[in-house]
């Protein structure tokens, strides 16, 4: 990775951290309040692509692990990596990587529809595919119980996938980072 790539990685790790500082928003018709943090996961993958997006979330988790309270609700430190919902944390780098991979695949015809496909597969499907088995393992509950318990968060995640896709398409037009050759021209 180039130094500029490292700066992008650090930037999105910071963005996910700042999104964690926002208070959860209660939404009508949705049982649990929406936190903004997974929005950052989707944006990291959509804007930076697979490798840098995944790296950004690994760096974010490292920053959480060394003791910064930047997870939503002011949580942080190593304790969050052993809690029952830790699997959702572990899923984030993978989710950002998958979103980035799909985004790069769709890059030439990138629009709202393709952005949605990438964010729903990577940002919702992958997150639950990793988070739910972990919840079942760490909490010692059957998979089905962990599954139904997690479903309360799905409506909020769908809202976030739409929001992230809208933003990603706009950034794709305004300041594309995935196709880098034009970088020098925009710096001045």
């Amino acid at each position: 990775m180039k130094t500029t790539d490292l700066a992008y990685v650090a930037l999105f790790a910071a963005i996910v951290a700042v999104l964690g500082l926002l208070p959860p928003v209660p939404a009508p018709g949705i049982p649990v309040p929406i936190t903004a943090q997974t929005l950052g996961v989707m944006l990291a993958g959509s804007v930076l692509g697979a490798r840098r997006g995944g790296a950004a979330l690994l760096v974010f988790l490292a920053v959480v692990a060394v003791g910064l309270p930047v997870l939503s609700g002011g949580r942080g430190g190593l304790a969050v990596f052993v809690g029952p919902s830790a699997g959702f944390l572990y899923s984030w780098p993978v989710a950002a990587f998958v979103i980035g991979l799909l985004t790069q695949l769709f890059w030439r015809r990138y629009n709202l529809a393709w952005a949605l496909v990438a964010n729903l597969i990577g940002g919702v499907l992958v997150v639950y595919a990793i988070g739910i088995p972990f919840l079942s393992l760490f909490g010692d509950v059957p998979l089905t119980t962990a599954f139904t318990g997690s479903m309360a968060f799905v409506p909020g995640d769908l809202v976030k996938a739409v929001a992230a896709s809208l933003v990603a398409v706009a950034v794709h037009k305004a300041y594309p980072v995935i196709d880098l050759p034009a970088r020098r021209a925009t710096a001045g």
Partner: peptide
């Protein structure tokens, strides 16, 4: 969107400065 464009531009500058 304007926020992301601003901070991306800033990160590009930081990377080049480094």
């Amino acid at each position: 969107v304007p926020l992301l464009v601003q901070v991306l531009r800033m990160a590009t500058t930081v990377g080049e400065a480094l």
